[in-house]
């Protein structure tokens, strides 16, 4: 009973905070409203006794939002971010898509024939999750990790506007390199 109430409250909180993203008038508030929504979802997962998933959700989302907020404020036309702004673009189309997807998902969740739980839930859900993810899929995970890491490095290399000729000069012999930020170690 108490669990049901907690889940309902957190669910409403998650949706309300998600809605707030589109009604507040500052980028910082929009970012942290989105974070509040994610934290409410983490609370839901925590209520379902999936501690590891819950805290990891909170951890990842907080980091993401904290960094994203900086970039969002930076790329805004009004970098101070305290002047009124809106997150709305293509209002009608977005509302139509949002309502349609929400209806589709809700119908799916309520009408699907969920299988009944078999056996008893494990006492250590973290361990169980690790077994499920890493036990039989270790190779996939290792390959995915390497691919993701390569993507990050490739993305950074493609995005940076300075190459080694900018740093070390046309003959690659300029020492120390011309870097906008000197850094803390000898280069």
């Amino acid at each position: 009973m108490l669990t049901d109430v907690t889940l309902a409250v957190l669910g409403v909180l998650a949706v309300a905070a998600g809605g707030a993203v589109f009604t507040v008038d500052s980028m910082a508030r929009a970012t942290y409203a989105l974070l509040a929504s994610f934290l409410a979802v983490a609370g839901i997962v925590l209520t379902l006794d999936l501690t590891y998933l819950a805290v990891v959700t909170a951890l990842m989302m907080t980091m993401e939002m904290a960094i994203m907020g900086v970039f969002m404020v930076m790329f805004m036309m009004n970098p101070g971010g305290l002047m009124p702004m809106t997150m709305m673009h293509n209002t009608r189309g977005a509302a139509a898509v949002g309502v349609a997807v929400f209806a589709l998902l809700t119908t799916g969740i309520w009408t699907i024939d969920w299988p009944d739980a078999r056996g008893r839930p494990s006492r250590d859900s973290t361990h169980q999750l690790a077994e499920a993810l890493m036990g039989s899929h270790m190779l996939v995970m290792v390959v995915v990790a390497a691919a993701l890491f390569a993507t990050i490095i490739a993305g950074t290399v493609l995005a940076t506007h300075r190459g080694r000729y900018d740093r070390f000069g046309p003959n690659l012999d300029a020492r120390p390199p011309r870097d906008p930020i000197p850094g803390g170690l000898p280069r």
């Binding site: 501690t51 590891y52 805290v55 990891v56 909170a58 951890l59 907080t62 859900s125 973290t126």
Partner: peptide
């Protein structure tokens, strides 16, 4: 919990 260390980190 089963994830104290991650909790501290969070």
């Amino acid at each position: 919990t089963t994830a104290d260390l991650v909790w501290f980190n969070t």
